[in-house]
């Protein structure tokens, strides 16, 4: 916010505490907005899963559980490195901060690359909704093709929105790394790292719900 890089408190705040509290509250309000944004998709998911359980099981069983699990681990580790990055900033560990941010960025990119491979496989198998969609399940012969297509619509939109948020998160991380390399963070100025951390953890939470709801339906068949 501040115009001169030396002044920590922007002109319209009384003190640094007011500024930090405002920033944290603002971020949480933004995340409340994000909860509703993704939540709308979960509501649609809930309705259709209730209506078409067979198709949901069929579509889910066809997703690549290995890649999904690997991605879950990757994201959980990235949340840990992000938390450690915040800690490094808070305790003035400049090198640690850059390393942890880099690690988070690498893990986030890994997630996106794996996701891209998954999408590619779906594309090859004509599981992308649209005119060329086709689907047959040996385990669930009763699953209606149209209903499975609804599942895949949701799969792509939900994971796509999540991936879009990851891309934005990666952009924020790059921005933070350049600032960290210039030594812009320290025990008295780490708000940007902390708030980006909030965002990153939130995106992780979305995946925590997406993973069981998309990949783990009726796996016991």
């Amino acid at each position: 916010m501040s115009h001169s890089s030396d002044s920590l408190v922007a002109h319209h705040f009384e003190d640094i505490e007011q500024q930090n509290e405002s920033a944290v509250l603002g971020m949480w309000l933004f995340l409340a907005q994000e909860i509703m944004f993704f939540g709308g998709l979960f509501a649609v998911y809930l309705v259709y899963r209730y209506k078409y359980p067979e198709a949901w099981a069929a579509g889910s069983t066809d997703l690549d559980i290995v890649l999904g699990t690997v991605n879950t681990v990757v994201l959980l580790v990235s949340s840990l490195t992000m938390a450690m990055a915040v800690w490094s900033a808070q305790t003035g560990r400049q090198k640690g901060l850059v390393r942890y941010l880099l690690a988070t960025l690498v893990l986030g990119s890994t997630f996106l690359v794996i996701k891209a491979f998954e999408y590619y496989a779906k594309f090859v198998h004509h599981h992308v909704p649209g005119a060329s969609f086709s689907f047959h399940s040996e385990h669930f012969p009763n699953a209606d093709e149209g209903h499975v297509q609804l599942f895949y619509c949701l799969y792509f939109i939900m994971t796509g929105m999540h991936a879009l948020h990851m891309v934005i998160g990666a952009g924020l991380l790059i921005w933070l790394i350049t600032l960290a390399l210039k030594g812009k963070f320290g025990p008295d100025r780490f708000m940007k790292v902390e708030l980006t951390g909030f965002y990153w953890h939130f995106v992780d939470i979305v995946w925590v719900f997406l993973f069981p709801l998309l990949y783990l339906i009726n796996r016991h068949h």
Partner: peptide
Amino acid sequence: WGKGIFDPSLGGDPVL
């Protein structure tokens, strides 16, 4: 996509 969430031909519900 030409196909989607609210498309009745797939079993989607416009009322949703």
